[in-house]
């Protein structure tokens, strides 16, 4: 139809404007701000001094490393756990499959704040499950609250539904006949999986890994409540700069650093998994 292209761009315009005005412009302002001098550092901006400062102090370097480590460990634990779950869920159909998917959507909708309340109770003093064992002297006190392990446990729980849903969608798109064809050609159940299902599921494993890593690295609630001041990550560091030390420029630099590291991680993950994806 005449002008169909024009109409298409017109319909895309509001969403592109929304992105540009409510995300692009604010991010640009924030990044510009991160190049400015502040109460702590006096230099003639714009310059990268704020970034240099954050990268030269071992305290902040630890925060950066901790953020990356937590996100990486969370991803490495979540993807296999989620993959197995998605493989099992794939066989369910009808009512059971429906319920299973709803069960995964529900924690996402309930929100991380309510979920983290549960973890605060469950991790404190061993909580209701480990607590009695500790009291009976069977195991030592786990001290998970305030530890990196505690944060990672809650992160895994928080991102698992996203991983399972992504992998499940990807696995469902693989025709079951392909696996059957491999079996009919003499492949065992395991080698059928290794040669057919696994390679075909790699694109969804890649998206799941990117989603999981990004969610974990950008999570605020879990490190704030379960990690506390001793386990700062870049997100909680940004909050500290804004709410405790009132240094907007360093906050902007920390946020810029987080964006940069996440971008690098996405590229790294894509390169690592992507080279196995054919065609």
């Amino acid at each position: 139809m005449t002008g169909a292209r024009g109409v298409q761009w017109l319909l895309l315009l509001p969403s592109l404007l929304l992105l540009a005005l409510l995300l692009g412009l604010p991010l640009a302002a924030m990044l510009a701000n991160s190049l400015q001098p502040n109460v702590l550092l006096s230099f003639t901006g714009p310059a990268l001094d704020n970034y240099g400062y954050l990268l030269s102090r071992s305290y902040y370097l630890q925060v950066i490393l901790r953020t990356l480590r937590m996100a990486a460990v969370t991803t490495l634990v979540t993807i296999p756990l989620g993959y197995i779950a998605a493989m099992l869920l794939r066989r369910l159909s009808g009512r059971a499959g429906n319920l299973a998917i709803m069960g995964l959507t529900f924690p996402i909708l309930a929100g991380p704040l309510t979920v983290v309340l549960g973890w605060m109770a469950l991790l404190a003093n061993g909580g209701p499950f480990l607590g009695p064992l500790v009291a009976a002297g069977l195991i030592g006190p786990p001290n998970l609250l305030g530890s990196e392990t505690g944060v990672v446990i809650s992160l895994v729980q928080f991102v698992l539904p996203f991983a399972v849903l992504t992998l499940y969608t990807g696995l469902r798109q693989i025709q079951p006949q392909l696996h059957e064809a491999a079996r009919s050609l003499g492949a065992g159940s395991l080698s059928g999986f290794l040669h057919v299902t696994l390679p075909l599921s790699l694109p969804s494993a890649l998206s799941a890994s990117i989603i999981v890593f990004s969610l974990a690295a950008s999570s605020f609630i879990s490190p704030h409540y379960l990690g506390g001041a001793g386990q700062l990550t870049l997100t909680t560091l940004v909050t500290q700069f804004i709410m405790a030390t009132f240094n907007a420029e360093l906050a902007a630099a920390a946020a810029g650093l987080l964006l940069l590291l996440m971008l690098a991680a996405v590229i790294g993950i894509t390169a690592a998994i992507g080279r196995f994806i054919r065609p």
Binding site: L23, L25, I210, T235, I242, L258
Partner: peptide, 24 residues
């Protein structure tokens, strides 16, 4: 993919960026 990009920006950062745009 472009329109899904807000998902990959940490929510804390979105909040901070809008705050700093307003103060700019």
């Amino acid at each position: 993919t472009l329109l899904a990009s807000p998902l990959l920006v940490p929510q804390v950062v979105i909040s901070l960026a809008i705050l700093q745009l307003a103060s700019a």
